[in-house]
C-alpha cells in the first residue's frame, strides 16, 4: 500500500482481527439469536425507494410484494439497523486510524473511469447473487459458516471459486 502515510494506524493482525470479528458474531448469536448481514439492508432500501417511485410494479412482484404488504414498513428490519451500525463502526475505525479520506482506491494500472464502471457493475452482479443465494459473504458465509449451516459452506467455497475463476482475467486491472 503506497498511499500509507506515517500517521496511519496499521491494520490489525488478521488472526487477532478474526477472533475479534468472531466474538462480535458470537455476541450477535447469543443476544439476538441471529448473525450478521451486509446485503439485506441494500435490498430493503432499494425496494423502499422503488416502492416510492413505482408502487404498483413493486407490489405486483412475487418476490418484493410481500415485503411491502400493508401493516409493515420495509425499513423496519434488524438488518437495516445493523448496516447503519456497520457504517458508523466503519467510520469510527477509519477515522481513528487516520484513514478517512475521500479517495478512489484502485489498482496501480486501472483508470478512474474503469474503476468507477467496474465498481458499479460488480455491485450489480453481487446484488443479484446475494438475493439468489439468500445472503452475501456476511449473511451466508460468515454467519451460516459459524452456525455450521451446510448450504452456507457450499456458498462460501463457491464465492472463493468464482473469484479465483475470474481473477486471471482482471490481473491487469488489480496488479
Amino acid at each position: 500500500m503506497s498511499d500509507k502515510t506515517h500517521n496511519e494506524a496499521p491494520f490489525w493482525n488478521p488472526y487477532l482481527a478474526g477472533i475479534f470479528l468472531g466474538l462480535v458474531l458470537l455476541g450477535s448469536f447469543v443476544v439476538m439469536g441471529n448473525g450478521l448481514g451486509g446485503s439485506g439492508a441494500a435490498n430493503r432500501v432499494a425496494i423502499g425507494a422503488a416502492h416510492l417511485v413505482a408502487p404498483q410494479a413493486v407490489e405486483n412482484s412475487a418476490y418484493m410484494g410481500p415485503m411491502v404488504a400493508p401493516g409493515q414498513h420495509i425499513l423496519d428490519d434488524w438488518l437495516v439497523w445493523e448496516v447503519l451500525g456497520v457504517f458508523l463502526g466503519g467510520a469510527l475505525a477509519a477515522y481513528s486510524a487516520g484513514r478517512m479520506k475521500l479517495v478512489l482506491l484502485r489498482g496501480p494500472r486501472a483508470t478512474v473511469l474503469s474503476r468507477l464502471a467496474l465498481a458499479l457493475i460488480g455491485g450489480v452482479i453481487m446484488g443479484v447473487a446475494a438475493r439468489l443465494g439468500r445472503g452475501c459473504t456476511s449473511g451466508q458465509a460468515l454467519t451460516g459458516g459459524a452456525a455450521l449451516a451446510a448450504g452456507s459452506w457450499v456458498f462460501m467455497f463457491a464465492v472463493f471459486g468464482g473469484g479465483y475463476l475470474v481473477a486471471p482475467l482482471l490481473r491487469r486491472y488489480w496488479k
Binding site: N7, A91, L92, Y95, S96, G98, M100, K101
Partner: peptide, 16 residues
C-alpha cells in the same frame, strides 16, 4: 467520539 479523537490525535476534520 469522533470529535474527541480529532482533538486528541490532531486529525483533520472530515465532513462525516
Amino acid at each position: 467520539v469522533l470529535e474527541s479523537i480529532e482533538i486528541k490525535k490532531h486529525l483533520p476534520l472530515v465532513a462525516v
